[in-house]
Design a protein around this nucleic acid. Structure first.
Lengths: 191, 191
DNA sequence: ACCTGAACACCGTTCAAGT
DNA sequence: ACCTGAACACCGTTCAAGT
């Protein structure tokens, strides 16, 4: 616990994220974050507008903790990578992850991830007008799973069982992608 | 706003749900709920153990607001019905819906919905050891979508566009089900 | 420019007391 | 049995003041 007697926005957010990870969202108070930085609560207001801004900042910080895949990877592997990266971020930051579904996916950090998915979908051959919707559909499935796991909705199931659940979600998403980009697994040529 | 001078657990929860629906979760305070019932905050403690218990009760109340389909419906229509019923409950109670992903899906209300899905999956021909996992996978997708919509993650998109997104999620889930129960849309007979 | 002290309204919760 | 009054520790936030 370094206690720099000079505070900035990043150190405030990092302290908040650490508290959220360790003790949950209800432990993230202005007094708690200030205490972790050896400062009075009022000192925080120079670096965050208010508590809502602090929480927004935590979500952004979480999003920077989603590693993007290297460009050299094929699109399908890149999508798998990102799904697992999102799940990993949810596991590391379960409390803050719950806030992700709660706000518009239009912040800087959210756009970085979204655009990486867009790019992979284009390479997969998804028609341009379908790209945005396809991203929302697969993000919805991945976020629903990661959020459920992080939030504890799956209860005390074993790690192996939850891993198998995630593999099933990935398979569902993958089959959906095959359908959308119109290749592999050829089936009834309806509409 | 009837003000019965006799209070019970149901009236406390209903007041809490109304406040959550109208003004959001942060407006659900012991004082706020008590005020709506024309009672002091301390009076609530005879009917709910504490605030966490009140919130748990709100989630249960929301779950009773998910109408189950009539038995006479075929399994696929019943699953569609439940997906739309969950989405509807999320739209009516967006604030409380956010709490759903946050707690174990093992409460009485959650089990009622879960078991209805189990039953439909069995009729669909899903093998018994796959029923539980399949339920988790499709619930994950539906909850992820409904939670995103209710939480505002989709931003200010038009109702029509969000409806189309939901239809795409339903299609993804439906195709997954075809795969799991092994019928229709025959494709490459791999593993 | 950055932090502090004092203060305010508002939380959740308790306990003893009223009826 | 059910509700209230008084009280406590703890919130978020402000404003004027210190350095």
């Amino acid at each position: 616990m370094g206690r720099p007697l000079q505070i900035d926005r990043i150190s405030v957010l990092e302290a908040g994220l650490r508290i959220a990870d360790e003790d949950g969202l209800q432990a993230v108070t202005m007094q708690g974050v200030a205490g972790a930085l050896c400062v009075t609560p009022m000192a925080l207001y120079r670096h965050v507008a208010n508590k809502a801004d602090l929480l927004d900042g935590l979500v952004e910080l979480l999003l920077t903790d989603v590693p993007l895949p290297p460009d050299t990877m094929a699109w399908r592997e890149r999508l798998e990578w990102m799904g697992e990266a999102v799940r990993g971020a949810a596991q590391r930051h379960p409390a803050v992850f719950a806030l992700l579904l709660q706000r518009p996916a239009a912040t800087a950090g959210a756009l970085v991830v979204r655009d990486a998915v867009y790019q992979a979908l284009r390479e997969a051959g998804v028609a341009e007008p379908e790209v945005a919707r396809t991203e929302r559909v697969i993000s919805t499935a991945i976020l629903g799973f990661a959020g459920s796991e992080a939030g504890g909705r799956f209860g005390s199931r074993s790690r192996q069982e939850v891993d198998a659940d995630f593999a099933a979600v990935e398979a569902m998403v993958s089959a959906y992608l095959d359908q959308v980009c119109g290749v592999s697994r050829p089936s009834v040529p309806s509409d």
